[in-house]
């Protein structure tokens, strides 16, 4: 079963609709047992880092997600969901994250640009990083994706950066990835046909 984690935050509807567009029967999961029973899991979310972690913890979902990730099953975070995969978040104070992809969530530098970073921007692979075996495999470098965020993930290991985008003089993490774990900082469910293709690949389907 494909699960979409419901922890009291986020645009669950959009993700479900995008999955339904592929005929994927995704269900909302809100308990550790339901998470454990999934074959693939999406962690969506908009809002502040601390609120997100509180929502997960109150439902015992933090440990369930860590265990799910450790099992090697595919897990995708979207926007705040991608940020929660990191070790710490620095939005309104420093907060502990899931630690599934070691790294920090930091504010986008404001020099010479507007923050939040809102709108369509291009996805590029960091030098030496391949998208093979990831949900981005069918994506052409330079494809546009829709972003809405003020913070981004800076992984401890640069190899965990799957895609970047440029905002003025700054390079922003657009996606993180390690094994079966993917964190989309942008919204694939709101990035038109290109985003839908990424979700389809995450679901294990071919393009």
């Amino acid at each position: 079963m494909i699960g979409v984690v419901d922890y009291g935050l986020g645009n669950l509807h959009s993700v479900l609709k995008a999955l339904a567009h592929h005929g994927a029967a995704a269900e909302l999961v809100a308990t550790p047992a339901a998470v454990a029973g999934c074959s693939r899991l999406i962690l969506p979310g908009v809002g502040a880092f601390a609120d997100g972690m509180r929502g997960l913890r109150e439902r015992g979902l933090d440990e369930a997600l860590v265990a799910f990730a450790a099992s090697g099953r595919p897990l995708a975070g979207i926007c705040l969901g991608a940020q929660l995969l990191a070790t710490t978040g620095e939005e309104f104070g420093t907060h502990v994250g899931l630690g599934i992809i070691p790294g920090r969530v930091v504010r986008i530098p404001a020099e010479a640009v507007k923050v939040p970073h809102v709108g369509w921007n291009r996805l590029v692979a960091p030098v030496g990083r391949s998208w093979s075996g990831t949900p981005l495999v069918g994506t052409v470098a330079g494809t546009w994706a829709y972003f809405v965020h003020s913070y981004h993930v800076v992984p401890d290991d640069p190899q965990d950066v799957l895609a970047v985008t440029s905002h003025g003089p700054h390079t922003i993490t657009a996606a993180v990835g390690r094994g079966a774990i993917t964190g989309f900082q942008f919204h694939p469910e709101k990035s038109g046909q290109a985003g839908l293709a990424m979700l389809r690949l995450f679901l294990g389907e071919s393009l």
Binding site: H13, S14, K17, A18, A20, H21, Y146, V148, H187, E189, K190, S191, G192, Q193, G195, L196
Partner: peptide, 11 residues
């Protein structure tokens, strides 16, 4: 709003 959300995949 609900029907639009099911039909389009942009914000």
């Amino acid at each position: 709003v609900r029907r639009v959300a099911a039909a389009i995949f942009i914000p």
